[in-house]
Design a protein around this nucleic acid. Structure first.
Lengths: 228, 228
DNA sequence: TCCCACATGTTGACAATGACAACATTCTCG
DNA sequence: CGAGAATGTTGTCATTGTCAACATGTGGGA
């Protein structure tokens, strides 16, 4: 029954009854995510932690999914923030920039595993229903696209639609990160590489792969890969 | 109360009381996953569908996670099966083989979204606790590693640890697949590429990226990417 | 062949959860 | 200042995961 934890984050001035519960609930959710993982992230637990009754969250979130969407949005914002910090420290070494951004992504996933599980993993059913969430995710992607454009200008990678290149880059790093967070997944342990090295290897592979344009059958394929 | 659906899959002969409930429960779980998604996958629903009482599953699975592990294991087996079907139809066109395997992976994820969410996405807490699950996942990975070895022999990609190369290949395709299944995720829609083309582009990029060895600073990096 | 131990399945219970309705309080604005 | 909206609370409900106590059918040893 101790309502002691609510300070951090938005230093909003609590205009009336509880203050702005909206932020308090999101913060409580983040704290629970950090301390107990996604399993402990329950609406009632969030309410308890925020010091309100179990039904109060419904005045601010239509249902649990809506809270998850807000938390996911926060996650994308933090992700963008981490990547942008690297971008802003760009000193002319483009390869280092790419490695740095990839490491930022991987580190974010590693240090916020449960947060990431909320952002992806379909806990929140659909991005479409939460415009703010979609926007935040879109901004994260935009960061990557801009890096691709920079790489093209600098001649590090071939010309082409930077969104496609960004999509591929995101896919690779996202896939790596998501495999790494599966505890005991029988891939990571067997490669003999640690996370840092694996990340570097992926980035290098990606850069080389993007150094030629991908105009359809570039590699040489008499593609008969029958699908659907 | 209708206990009408239980036939499909294992045509086991129901030796004694109910038959072998273990398989019936897994099959019921798969059916629910297919029809109602991961949200409807509840222990009691599985029991209902199998025509037994709500507590019967506990004679075969320690808890819900154990059922999820069995379902996940089935998923990895099906994934392997899909990829192996492509491998076995190898006709000498290695590039086509790679494209085919990637498409098999992507298609599996697209057609079994909720099954994949059980396999990954941390619903089952940890691979370590379920050796069978880990083994099935390991076999899937092994398929990819063997393809990498084949690619090395044929000279399509550079020499190197095939497990690392396989890890990268898995990461890329896995990342692509997992982004694609996020409905409304503001990346896929904007690239103007459909799934097939995007998959092909990823494979081509990957092949090119793997055509040179990745001995540390291959691309040229004065790596100052500070991490932890 | 008979009987008992054990595997399997059932019933009942419990706390926790998401969600809703009815009610209480506090703010805002006309 | 006072009505209505915004916000928060209490109470309730069905559902769920899990456990304990009980029932039932199976198979092995006398």
């Amino acid at each position: 029954m101790d309502n002691a934890q609510k300070s951090l984050a938005t230093d909003a001035p609590r205009p009336y009854h509880h203050g702005d519960l909206w932020h308090a609930l999101v913060q409580a959710g983040l704290a629970i995510l950090r301390e107990e993982g996604v399993h402990g992230l329950t609406l009632r637990a969030v309410a308890r932690r925020a010091g309100v009754s179990h039904s109060a969250p419904y005045r601010h979130f239509a249902d649990k999914d809506a809270l998850l969407a807000a938390i996911g949005e926060d996650g994308f914002n933090r992700l963008s923030q981490g990547m942008r910090a690297v971008i802003e420290s760009y000193d002319g070494d483009l390869v280092a920039l790419l490695h740095g951004v990839a490491h930022a992504y991987i580190r974010f996933v590693a240090e916020n595993t449960d947060h990431v599980r909320v952002m992806f993993s379909g806990l929140l059913s659909c991005f479409d229903e939460y415009p703010n969430l979609a926007e935040a995710a879109g901004r994260s992607f935009q960061d990557v696209v801009e890096i691709m454009q920079l790489c093209q200008r600098e001649g590090l990678i071939a010309a082409g639609d930077p969104r496609q290149q960004g999509f591929m880059a995101w896919s690779m790093v996202h896939g790596l990160a998501n495999i790494l967070i599966e505890e005991g997944f029988p891939v990571a342990e067997k490669t003999g590489l640690d996370i840092q090295q694996m990340t570097d290897a992926c980035v290098d592979t990606l850069i080389r792969g993007l150094q030629s344009p991908h105009n359809g059958t570039q590699v040489a394929a008499n593609s008969q890969h029958v699908i659907s």
